[in-house]
Amino acid sequence: MGQLYLNLSSESVMIEVKELSKTYQLGKVDVHAMVDVTFRIDAGEFVAVMGPSGSGKSTLMNLLGCLDLPSSGSYFLEKFDIRSLSPNQLAEVRNKRIGFVFQNFNLLPRASALENVELPLLYGRIQNSHQIARDSLERVGLADRAMHRPNELSGGERQRVAIARAIVNNPAIVLADEPTGNLDTRTGDEIMNVFSSLNDEGATIILVTHERDVASRARRIIQMKDGRMHQDILNEGLIA
């Protein structure tokens, strides 16, 4: 447990979780939100996490996103043992190595699209943040909307801004929590296209969804049920 680095069998391992569990205490009752989840995700993978509500998908996302710490088990992100990091180091991991995309976009309402994308760079004290943020917006095809505020953008555009923000620091993984949940089917498809092309460019993407259509865009599907990993399958349709 004390080791900081894991001897990786392959250089390309991005995430390695072993017997990861999370137990919440609600009063005197222990709620086992996640029990003994073990898997490995390599660089460049596109993984969908599926399951009904209460199956532990959100808990898994929070743990992978370093927003929460596991009750037991280990989590290595790019060789780093997450449990050994200080709160400030965790903040830095969230800032530089993880990109979040949320169902409800979670943009700052008073800031322009560009400023929203720029924000992680500011927290990371990265030089030339303006240009980098602009490039990121271009990658999601929104360069011409840079100065608009979120309330002046459509749902699909907002989610693109959120994706641009998630990838602006070239993170190790992009975590998307129901990214199409608030969008109509056509716009949802467009957003999935953005994820697909990012994945083609080499980004590692983990996506939580309960929609089969959305999950079908991923190369691998992890099924959660009652806090445990139920299934871990390759998406044959796509691979074959």
Binding site: P87, N88, A91, N95, F100, N106, L108, P120, Y123, G124
Partner: peptide, 11 residues
């Protein structure tokens, strides 16, 4: 919450 998620430190 957003700020913490994208890497703001407590300080």
């Amino acid at each position: 919450g957003i700020r913490i998620a994208i890497g703001a430190k407590k300080s």
